[in-house]
């Protein structure tokens, strides 16, 4: 464990909590892409199956359970409890265009051809593009609530910090996972446009305007 990975995990946890609280407190999921949240739930489910097979640490296990629990709770709030506020018309990204290529890539490029490893690889590739429906939805509506931009900032920051963690681990531990690094780079690059807007427009107006 190093400072980049710890702050990365905390940033990820913050994002998940921010979103869950926003929906719960405002009793509305307006402006939130349910499809992205379903993809995140799938990412955590396929990645954390090792909860059933191996124990690494209390931190590792508890964080995984929190991530999975919050992901499914968020999906539940969007599609069941506050489904009347779900903006299905703007959440129109065709996720099959993500899941199918990612699934194919996971079968073709992985570290070893075992079910657990392919599912883990699938979750790594899927996570790198899971935010696209959300970014697409914001570009369609042309705006996002301030709290949603904070959610996206923390979510984007987490993987950027993980990139620094991988540099650290390569230098100090000789650890190198090209699949995670490649997907992490793609994931972080997807947020660059948003990061720029978040920093330049930060705090100016209540509704953040996102250029399409």
């Amino acid at each position: 464990m190093n400072v980049f990975r710890l702050t990365g995990d905390l940033s990820h946890l913050a994002a998940i909590i921010i979103l869950l609280l926003k929906i719960w407190k405002s009793r509305s999921c307006a402006g939130i892409s349910g499809k992205s949240q379903i993809l995140f739930a799938v990412v955590f489910t396929t990645r954390y199956l090792d909860l059933l097979t191996s124990f690494i640490s209390l931190y590792n296990t508890s964080m995984k359970l929190i991530y999975i629990g919050c992901a499914y709770a968020t999906v539940y709030l969007i599609y069941v409890k506050f489904r009347a506020t779900y903006d299905g018309n703007h959440d129109s990204f065709r996720v099959e265009f993500l899941v199918v290529p990612v699934g194919g890539l996971a079968v073709l490029i992985n570290h070893n051809f075992s079910l657990m490893e392919i599912l883990w690889t699938f979750s790594i590739y899927l996570e790198s593009v899971a935010i696209l429906p959300q970014l697409f939805m914001i570009s369609k509506t042309g705006e996002a609530e301030t709290i949603t931009t904070h959610y996206l900032f923390c979510l984007g920051l987490y993987r950027a910090l993980y990139l620094l963690n991988w540099i650290w681990r390569y230098y100090f531990e000789g650890f190198l996972d090209m699949i995670a690094i490649f997907a992490g780079l793609v994931q972080t690059v997807l947020y660059c446009d948003f990061f720029y807007l978040y920093v330049t427009k930060g705090g100016k107006d209540r509704k953040k305007v996102m250029l399409p």
Binding site: D9, S54, I56, S57, Y67, H111, W120, D177, A180
Partner: peptide, 10 residues
């Protein structure tokens, strides 16, 4: 350089 077999990252 090796890819650590046990996945210890979230």
């Amino acid at each position: 350089v090796f890819q650590q077999m046990e996945k210890d990252e979230l």
